[in-house]
Lab assay of single mutants.
Amino acid sequence: KEYCRTLFAYEGTNEDELTFKEGEIIHLISKETGEAGWWRGELNGKEGVFPDNFAVQINEL
């Protein structure tokens, strides 16, 4: 499994977007979303897309 840590808080504006606080760990599902600048991940049981410049991939939890 791949993970990323959020660098900033983000408020999702669409139903398919994740909302998160700074410093949260998102399970990274895919970097290929069909839309440049967006990754797909899962946080707190919800799957959605989020801007990749708001997070950095990490090697271990």
Rank of each mutant, 00 (worst) to 15 (best):
F54L: 15
E47S: 13
I29E: 02
A36L: 08
E15A: 12
A55E: 02
S30K: 06
G48L: 02
I29H: 04
V49M: 12
P51M: 14
G48K: 02
L43M: 09
G37A: 00
V56C: 08
E35L: 13
R40N: 02
G37V: 03
Y10K: 10
E32I: 10
A36E: 11
E35V: 15
E11L: 07
F50Y: 02
L61R: 13
L7C: 07
T6M: 06
T33E: 06
A9K: 12
L43A: 08
V56Q: 09
I58M: 14
K46F: 04
G12N: 03
G34P: 10
T33G: 12
E42I: 13
T13H: 10
Y10A: 03
I25G: 04
A36H: 10
I29T: 09
T19K: 06
A55M: 01
K31D: 02
D16K: 14
N14K: 13
T19Q: 05
N14A: 13
N44L: 08
G41A: 02
T13Q: 15
L18C: 00
L28P: 04
Y3A: 07
V56W: 06
N59I: 02
E2P: 08
A9Q: 12
K21L: 10
R40F: 10
G45S: 07
A36Q: 15
L28H: 03
E42K: 14
T6Q: 03
Y10S: 04
E35C: 13
G23H: 03
P51K: 15
E11T: 09
R5H: 06
L61E: 14
I25M: 12
F20S: 04
G12C: 07
N59S: 14
L43C: 09
D16M: 10
R40K: 14
G23C: 06
R40A: 06
V49G: 03
E42S: 13
L28N: 04
R5G: 01
D16C: 11
G34F: 05
F8H: 11
E35A: 15
N53I: 10
N59W: 07
Y10C: 03
A36Y: 07
K31P: 02
A55W: 03
E35R: 15
E47I: 15
C4P: 00
E17Y: 06
A36K: 14
I58A: 11
C4G: 02
G48F: 00
F20G: 03
F8I: 11
E32S: 12
N14D: 12
A9L: 04
F54E: 03
D52K: 13
R5L: 07
C4L: 13
G23T: 06
E24F: 00
Y3N: 08
E17I: 00
N14G: 12
L61T: 15
I29V: 13
I26G: 01
G37L: 01
E32D: 14
G12K: 09
G12W: 06
F20V: 04
E2S: 11
V49D: 06
A55R: 00
N14R: 12
Q57F: 08
H27G: 12
E22M: 05
T6H: 03
F50N: 01
H27V: 13
A9D: 14
E24P: 03
A55K: 00
A55H: 00
G12I: 00
E35N: 14
N14W: 09
I25S: 06
F54Y: 15
I58Y: 09
H27M: 12
P51L: 07
G48I: 02
F20T: 01
T13R: 15
L18T: 05
E60K: 15
N59C: 03
F50E: 01
F20K: 03
E47R: 13
F50W: 01
E17M: 07
L28Q: 00
A9F: 06
E2H: 15
E42N: 12
G12F: 03
F50V: 03
G12V: 00
E42L: 09
P51N: 04
F54D: 08
L43K: 10
G34I: 03
E32C: 10
E22T: 09
L18K: 02
L28K: 05
G37T: 06
N14V: 06
S30E: 10
K31G: 05
T6R: 03
G12E: 06
C4K: 03
Q57C: 11
R5E: 10
I25Q: 09
A9T: 08
G45N: 07
Y3S: 09
Y3T: 04
S30Q: 07
I58D: 14
N59A: 11
G12P: 07
Y10E: 04
V49C: 11
E35W: 07
E15P: 13
D16N: 14
E17R: 05
G23I: 04
E35Y: 15
D16L: 12
E15G: 11
L7P: 00
R40H: 08
F54A: 15
I26V: 11
G41C: 00
G41D: 04
R40S: 04
T6N: 00
E60V: 08
K31F: 01
E22Y: 00
I58P: 06
N44V: 01
L28G: 01
L61K: 15
T13V: 12
I25K: 07
L43P: 03
I58F: 11
F8D: 08
E32K: 13
E35M: 13
K21T: 12
E15L: 10
N44G: 13
E47D: 07
V49A: 08
W39K: 05
T13M: 14
C4V: 07
E42G: 07
E47A: 09
K31A: 03
F54I: 10
I26T: 04
I58C: 11
L18F: 03
R40T: 04
I25W: 02
G41I: 00
G34N: 06
V56T: 15
I29Y: 02
E22A: 12
N53W: 07
E32H: 10
E15H: 14
E35Q: 15
G45L: 01
E60T: 11
L43N: 06
A9V: 04
E2D: 15
F8N: 13
W39C: 05
K1A: 05
E17H: 12
K31L: 05
Q57I: 14
T33N: 07
G41E: 01
L18N: 02
G34V: 07
V49S: 08
N14E: 10
L43T: 05
K46T: 08
E42C: 10
H27P: 06
N44Y: 07
K46W: 02
L61Y: 15
L28M: 05
F54P: 04
F54R: 14
A36F: 10
N59V: 07
I29R: 08
E35D: 14
L61P: 15
I25L: 12
I58R: 06
A55L: 04
G12R: 05
N59E: 13
L28I: 12
